[in-house]
């Protein structure tokens, strides 16, 4: 028994050595495999959620994402909808947004890119406030706080 334990211990230690030797050359492959695991995707609270609508204007595009209400065990009562403007944006952005696709405009948003001021006019009681409004590498992004439907 004692001998078996010793052999098992040394075997386990050598296995560690082999794993370490192949770890760095194989790191890219291992990482790709790990990245394919079902839970290896960024939570929509950070990505902003999937794109729901894509609108094309003359010089820029507008992406309205699916509202995000992600919670730990159940959906949260409050969430947000993210809107991304891409391309050659005007100094003053004015847009009316229908985030839930019911044909009714839910809010009007005005972004002054010069003084970084964002104003929101809500037409839907579920629309709360501007959570984030920021320039991004692709244009501009806004998150508008929402209450659950």
């Amino acid at each position: 028994m004692k001998k078996t334990k010793i052999i098992a211990g040394i075997f386990w230690a050598f296995l560690g050595l082999i794993v370490f030797i192949i770890l760095f050359p194989g790191l890219n492959n291992f990482s790709v495999s790990v990245s394919k695991l079902p839970f290896m995707k960024i939570n929509p609270r950070y990505t902003g959620g999937e794109k729901a609508y894509h609108l094309v204007a003359e010089k820029c595009t507008l992406d309205i994402r699916r509202p995000v209400f992600n919670g730990f065990l159940k959906e949260s009562n409050s969430g947000f909808v993210q809107i991304d403007w891409r391309g050659d944006l005007p100094a003053l952005i004015n847009d009316s947004i229908d985030y839930n696709g019911d044909g009714e405009k839910d809010f009007f948003i005005q972004i002054n890119r010069k003084n970084l001021k964002t104003d929101l006019k809500s037409f839907n009681p579920k629309v709360k406030d501007v959570v984030i409004s920021t320039p991004t590498s692709y244009g501009w992004a806004v998150r508008v706080g929402l209450l659950k439907e």
Binding site: K41, I42, N43, R45, Y46
Partner: peptide
């Protein structure tokens, strides 16, 4: 529980990615 990562980083590729 949510099958997602609660960090605003990159899963693979880029500087200091999560998978590696």
């Amino acid at each position: 529980f949510t099958k997602s990562i609660i960090f605003p980083g990159s899963i693979i590729g880029g500087f200091a990615n999560i998978s590696s």
